[in-house]
Amino acid sequence: MSTEKSFANGSAAPGPVPEGCIRLYSMRFCPFAHRTRLVLSAKGIKHDTININLKDKPDWFLEKNPLGLVPTLETTAGEVIYESPITCDYLDEVYPQNKLLPSSPYAKAQQKMMLEHFSKITPYFYKIPMGRRNGEDVSGLTAELKEKFAKLNEDLVNKKTKFFGGDSITMIDYMMWPWFDRLEMFELKHCLDSTPELKKWAERMSEDPAVKATTHSVDTYKAFTKTYINGKPDYDYGL
């Protein structure tokens, strides 16, 4: 079973996970769930997707994941895995095709450390637009974000590689991408103007088949965000 429309409280629970398949509980516009969708697509993993209404979650979903978060994975054996980096690492380990994490323990640790650093950047993507909407001066926050981007740019310059883990896309690129995919929606694309290597990285990423398969148009992102800001998120927008 695979659905686009979201399941809300009161909806019947989906049936068992089909044999030879893994199930993703997701939300179409969630950047964290986007990470897992990218990995599923990049690795060509057979899966079905159940979208969840995050404002009115079904009880049966909360029984599977008491935190009520997406992404959540469920196997045919009823095993449940959640938190985006954990779901992605799990998929890379269980499905050996198209490995995304490096085999070297040190290189793997480097990617995880970089992900920790990136987790300190993601709040800026929300704070700046929110501050702007509230009529606040966000120039200081914008300058800070540009500094963070400058460090990422420097990392690419020093490595002399096309992507953050080498000359092909690896896990860290997919872990970072959902927020860059939404740069135009956040009206932050200009923050890449003084980071040419990072800008080239974003352009290369946008050509990746998994990226193309899991994105929405800027207009769709903006329209959903408008419903979210108004307090009535339309998780089924555009369907």
Rank of each mutant, 00 (worst) to 15 (best):
A33K: 01
D181K: 02
Q110N: 08
M1Q: 11
K55N: 14
T225V: 14
S103K: 13
S84N: 04
M175T: 03
A33L: 03
E19D: 11
S104A: 01
S2P: 00
A150V: 04
G165I: 05
K112Y: 04
T170H: 08
T36C: 06
L192M: 07
L67F: 11
Y106N: 10
E187C: 03
K64L: 05
G165C: 11
C88L: 08
I121W: 13
C21R: 08
E63A: 15
I45S: 11
L67C: 09
D236G: 01
V211H: 06
P16E: 14
S41K: 01
P102L: 06
T227Q: 03
D48M: 14
A42Y: 10
H34I: 03
A143L: 07
D208W: 04
P14M: 01
Q97G: 13
N9M: 14
W179I: 11
T72V: 09
K200W: 05
T142H: 01
P123D: 05
T49V: 12
P16N: 15
K46V: 09
D137C: 00
G238W: 08
V157R: 15
A223F: 11
E19M: 13
E144N: 05
I121R: 08
L198N: 01
K159G: 14
G231D: 00
M130F: 06
D234C: 03
F180Y: 01
M114N: 02
A143P: 07
I50L: 00
P102T: 05
D236R: 02
L100Y: 03
K222G: 02
I172A: 07
E19T: 07
V17Y: 04
E19F: 09
A107E: 05
E79N: 10
E4Q: 13
R37S: 07
S139F: 05
T76R: 15
P58W: 03
E63M: 12
